[in-house]
């Protein structure tokens, strides 16, 4: 298990390198997962492997406070997650442009990173991407606070007894993050993304949303602001596109990197 200190935080990193053929380009794909109980495994079992086998190195990491990365008591603003990613790429000696894949909250991190570092992004894939616009933090905070108060009021050991070890562990982790760190208040300190900065982004962006997703509004706003956006809305699906439409997403993402790399190398 690779552990890398980035921005002063110990991050758990997994790299999948194409085994039987060389990497197609020097541009790896960095996978950024969602918030709360999510971690890099949601990509490990779905997209990372096919991407690596198709010739693009796949790099996944657990965000701070998530998975088996360190859980510092504070530093959970979007800019902190962006700074972690910058430091991680530095630590991995990746100075050139990379592809970014963000799922849910990972989308907000990818967009924040791209606005701050436009030269370091070759392309982006946003899966049900969150988008730090006005009102976003309030929506996230209200959802997470209700989960957090349930956990704080209850007893995570009771969860374990009632629902088994796995759910008990998930409840423990969510409790530690939501009630044991500045996660909720930090989330509130978001700097919304300036639409003009988005309009200046030149990297190609591929977005995929579920038709019935609670964040479908972000898809409409992205359409407005991103000049180089290719959007797919998957009919009948909600927010969990990554697990509910894995095969479709695999095809979209693998084709996207193959096309982007051939366009860049041309």
């Amino acid at each position: 298990m690779a552990e890398i200190i980035a921005n002063g935080v110990r991050l758990h990193v997994q790299r999948l390198v194409p085994r039987d053929r060389p990497c197609r380009s020097g541009r790896p794909a960095i996978f950024i997962h969602g918030l709360g109980i999510d971690n890099l495994s949601s990509f490990y079992y779905t997209l990372a492997n096919p991407v690596a086998r198709a010739g693009t190195e796949a790099i996944m990491y657990d965000l701070r406070g998530h998975g088996v990365s360190e859980r510092p008591p504070n530093g959970y603003r979007v800019v902190d997650f962006v700074a972690d990613l910058e430091a991680l790429l530095d630590a991995l000696d990746l100075a050139g442009p990379v592809h970014l894949v963000g799922n849910s909250f990972g989308g907000a991190v990818a967009l924040g990173f791209a606005v701050a570092n436009p030269d370091r992004v070759a392309s982006m894939v946003l899966i049900e991407g969150h988008f730090a616009v006005a009102g976003w933090a309030e929506q996230m905070e209200s959802t997470l606070r209700s989960i957090g108060s349930d956990l704080a009021a209850g007893n995570t050991q009771l969860w374990q007894k009632t629902y088994g070890r796995k759910l008990g562990r998930m409840a423990e982790l969510a409790d530690a993050l939501i009630n044991g760190t500045t996660f909720l208040t930090d989330l509130h300190k978001v700097d919304t993304i300036d639409p003009r900065a988005l309009q200046e982004l030149t990297c190609p962006v591929r977005a995929v949303y579920g038709e019935h997703s609670d964040v479908i509004g972000y898809a409409h706003q992205l359409r407005q602001f991103l000049p180089s956006l290719t959007m797919t809305v998957l009919p009948g699906l909600g927010h969990f596109v990554l697990t509910d439409a894995t095969a479709t997403l695999r095809e979209i993402v693998v084709n996207w990197f193959t096309t982007q790399d051939s366009l860049i190398d041309r």
């Binding site: 298990m1 997994q14 657990d62 998975g67 070890r165 796995k166």
Partner: peptide, 15 residues
């Protein structure tokens, strides 16, 4: 049986 979390399965694969 083990109710292994998916991130724990990643740990096992690495080990």
């Amino acid at each position: 049986d083990l109710e292994l979390e998916s991130i724990e399965f990643v740990k096992l694969a690495t080990r």
